[in-house]
Design a protein around this nucleic acid. Structure first.
Lengths: 141, 141
DNA sequence: CTATTTGCTCTATAACTAATAGAACAATAG
DNA sequence: CTATTGTTCTATTAGTTATAGAGCAAATAG
């Protein structure tokens, strides 16, 4: 089982699928060029409709993370080492981050703890990535 | 005009209203004890239905940020200086933060830049707050 | 070329959410 | 008591989520 979904979570299934795949790319489980299951296979695996997976894959394609080709399937298009974000990505992301951080501040979480939690999450992703990573372009230049 | 909403934003109106109020609490524009407009007034002000504001206020109440009393209206229940978050707040928040950060990592944003953007946002909130702030409990103890 | 695989598109339905609308209830301040 | 203000109720319209099935279209395999 590549990933799981929680039908009681409140978050739509297709967004859960998206989030899991984004996370897998961020932590190195999936790298540029990795192949994902076909929409029909993954749908059967999770016990959901393939249109739902279709929606998740399509969203990831719009975000530039997947390349979808008939007969080939879904292939990871980019990963943390594929270079900087597309111009414009930071705009919307920063705004959402602002709301997220304001929420914690309003609830009284100390600024230091907020930064610390961010760093912990980022360190965990980087740590996991260093395990999966086979360096690119550095093995016998 | 206390706040504005963007009807074309995609984000539901009641969530936009919530986000603006959370932000206003985080940046010191609103403090514990501040009174908000009545649901009917704010609705008229924004040109939306009062049930929509009701939903936003109710959500903020569930989050512990507002106290709603008939005849009195909506009063800010807590602010950044009201003490640490309720136990359990960090759980769900941390999970959402994880997804948010993973997204930026997957898109290739450098770890340093991510941390830096968090700090910039937090600094801006704190800076704005220091302007609004009249110290609590330190004026002639 | 044909055949298969796999993404993609179309229609359709049920359940839920968002937003509007109007009426009325309930607590609280004056 | 009266006015204010949150709260609850029903209802409607529009949009989203998830399911379902049929079939189209492109890319690979033989």
């Amino acid at each position: 089982m590549l990933l799981t979904v929680d039908l009681t979570s409140g978050l739509p299934i297709y967004l859960q699928v998206r989030d899991r795949i984004v996370d897998a790319i961020a932590d190195g489980t999936l790298r540029e060029g990795s192949r994902l299951p076909t929409t029909r296979d993954l749908a059967a695996d999770l016990g959901v409709n393939f249109h739902t997976i279709n929606k998740a894959y399509d969203l990831l394609r719009q975000e530039g993370l997947l390349r979808l080709t008939r007969q080939v399937g879904a292939v990871v298009q980019r990963d943390p080492d594929s270079g900087p974000p597309a111009p414009g990505f930071a705009d919307g992301w920063d705004e959402r981050l602002h709301t997220m951080l304001a929420e914690a501040v309003a609830q009284g979480m100390p600024r230091q703890e907020i930064v610390s939690r961010c760093q912990t999450i980022l360190a965990a992703l980087a740590e996991s990535r260093s395990g999966h990573q086979q360096k690119r372009g550095t093995s016998r230049g």
